[in-house]
Design a protein around this nucleic acid. Structure first.
Lengths: 151, 151
DNA sequence: GCGAAATGTTAGACAAGGCTAACAATCTGC
DNA sequence: GCAGATTGTTAGCCTTGTCTAACATTTCGC
């Protein structure tokens, strides 16, 4: 629509210190490595709440991955102290896992409501929120919440 | 084993069809697999524009990763038809790469300006935009652009 | 135009996150 | 209470994305 190849302008927003860029990319990489864990604990909390327990098979169907993938990921979550599990038993969140789940749910809710407030349809809002929620800083989240509150 | 039909509490926003959730997660995974390529072509385009050429060393410092990581990633981009490269030479975008870079830059700009319009400080806006831009649908982007335009 | 510095590449390691195939345990319906 | 279905686990493979160490090439300073 605008700019690009014939754009001899400042290229708005790119002449800032490289350190900031590096930091931004490193932040994104860090966020990416937390994403899966966040999605899992959020889903596990929800399953425990709505189904009474969290079973690997339900996680697999809801995440759209296979059972072995879930098993491996759950092992990592257990290693990282977010869940506890025993062979052939359903999954429990640790205190830490519960805290993370709660925080994620909170963020998800705000992002979702924000997108809906902007006028987005519910389906797209849900899809976008799922991706965006992991990349929103506290500060941005506060602004989203404020926007929702006054609209 | 358990009756899943007793959800007395709506648990706002989670009683929607599981298919939608699966789709959302699959979309996020797809987006995640595109992220790196998008960041690279965007950066390469910018380097060509501002420095006259895109060298691996500049990509490495700006992305905050080591040279071998860049080399391997560039090989993948070349394999995927986004760039062309020759040993010990600088990097060029293919037509396809240029198109992707342009689209990414456009998205990045809109997300960034949107966050700034909301009242976010420039540093945080830049960091969040870097993460969010890959997870924003066309529809959401349009809403962001509209918001920027009227604020 | 040569040697040192800068840059680029290759090799090999490792973790994450995905898969299929094969096997083990549990649960369910007679 | 047992057979078959469902669920869970293990083993092994693949790709991505990161790293370090070692080596190759190019560029720069003089």
């Amino acid at each position: 629509m605008h700019d690009d190849t014939h754009d001899v302008l400042p290229l708005a927003g790119d002449d800032r210190s490289p350190d900031l860029r590096v930091e931004a990319f490193q932040g994104v990489r860090a966020a990416r490595s937390r994403e899966l864990a966040e999605d899992y604990v959020e889903l596990i909390a929800e399953l425990i709440h709505t189904q009474g327990e969290a079973r690997p098979v339900d996680i697999a169907t809801r995440m759209g991955v296979t059972a072995p993938t879930v098993a491996k990921t759950l092992d990592r979550l257990a290693r990282d102290g977010l869940i506890t599990r025993a062979k052939y038993r359903s999954i429990f969140l640790t205190e830490q896992g519960r805290a993370l789940a709660h925080e994620c749910r909170h963020r998800h809710e705000i992002v979702l409501r924000f997108l809906l407030s902007l006028g987005l349809d519910p389906e797209t809002a849900e899809r976008d929120a799922e991706g965006i929620e992991h990349h929103v800083s506290e500060r941005t989240l506060a602004l989203f919440a404020a926007f929702v509150a006054r609209n």
